[in-house]
Design a protein around this nucleic acid. Structure first.
Length: 274
DNA sequence: GCATTACCCTGAAAGC
DNA sequence: TGCTTTCAGGGTAATG
């Protein structure tokens, strides 16, 4: 389940392999993703053009091409993007394939089909309906307590829902929200309205630290994630609470609990997190 | 305007 | 062993 760190790790591994490569052909297949892929438009706007940049915004990957066109990709829950030899046979759930010069193929597979792929004008990306409402990036510049407190103004809901709301802070998913709340010693069900400046400072530091550590570890691989070369991440060995219900807290030894909020699992230490 | 819930989907794992 | 059920969750729409 790619969150911000996984997409950033992917971006870094894709960039050197894609920069300067020219698209020879575009193939699509399988059932539609969250939205159908506009194959004719992708062919018309990408074939013959070379990649000039690979960027990231929240959990979206932006592949910029000559001529001011950008391929926007979202991996949803199970999306996997790899660069393979062009001769590699198609696999099940392969939705998009860019044949590149140099005998390579950029391939998007997404069994659960929560992902997204579309092309847009580079200079109009920020107005695109998928991207226009995204909140601020947590790492550049790094979030601080005052910024988080500002985003929370007027809200009363639980902290966990606040962190997961991509319109406020973009790119934090369930795993890193759980880990950041543990690190900040804050309970996921606690109302944002009860936090003081010191709490916001702790939370902002925790979000930044958790995301940076995860990027450094190559992301988290639970089921699906791998970078463009197929390398899996290692952050899961660093996780203190996520998926560890029943195990002892690494800080105090109390049992880690699982709590369901709005259909999402939260993992926490009820003794450390208040 | 904000909070909460349901929905989309498939594969892995758990349960029987 | 083999079938059925449950669970995973990002983003969005509908509902309260």
């Amino acid at each position: 389940m790619p969150e911000l760190p996984e997409v950033e790790v992917l971006r870094r591994s894709l960039a050197p392999r894609l920069l300067g490569r020219r698209v020879a052909w575009v193939e699509t297949g399988g059932k539609p993703l969250r939205e159908p892929i506009a194959r004719a438009r992708l062919r018309r706007e990408l074939v013959g053009r070379a990649v000039v940049a690979v960027r990231r915004r929240a959990k979206y990957l932006w592949v910029d091409f000559e001529g001011g066109r950008t391929l926007v990709l979202h991996l949803g829950m199970s999306g996997r993007l790899t660069v393979v030899p062009a001769t590699t046979p198609r696999e099940p759930h392969e939705h998009l394939s860019l044949l590149l010069d140099g005998g390579l193929r950029l391939r998007l597979r997404d069994p659960r089909r929560f992902g997204l792929a579309f092309v847009a004008a580079t200079d109009a990306l920020t107005f695109d309906p998928h991207l226009a409402g995204l909140g601020r990036e947590p790492l550049d510049p790094p979030l601080d307590g005052a910024a988080l407190a500002g985003l929370s103004r007027g809200r009363r809901g639980p902290l966990k829902a606040f962190l997961l709301d991509g319109r406020l802070v973009a790119g934090v998913g369930n795993i890193y929200a759980c880990e950041a709340l543990f690190r900040a010693r804050l309970h996921p069900a606690r109302s944002v309205a009860t936090l003081r400046a010191e709490h916001w400072r702790r939370l902002a530091e925790a979000v930044v630290a958790v995301l940076e550590r995860a990027i450094a570890a190559g992301g988290t691989t639970l089921n699906d994630f791998a970078d463009a070369d197929g390398r899996e991440g290692l952050f899961q060995v660093d996780m203190a609470v996520y998926g560890r219900a029943g195990e002892p807290c690494t800080t105090c030894g109390a049992r880690i609990r699982r709590l369901v909020q709005a259909g999402r699992s939260s993992y926490l230490c009820g003794r450390c997190q208040r």
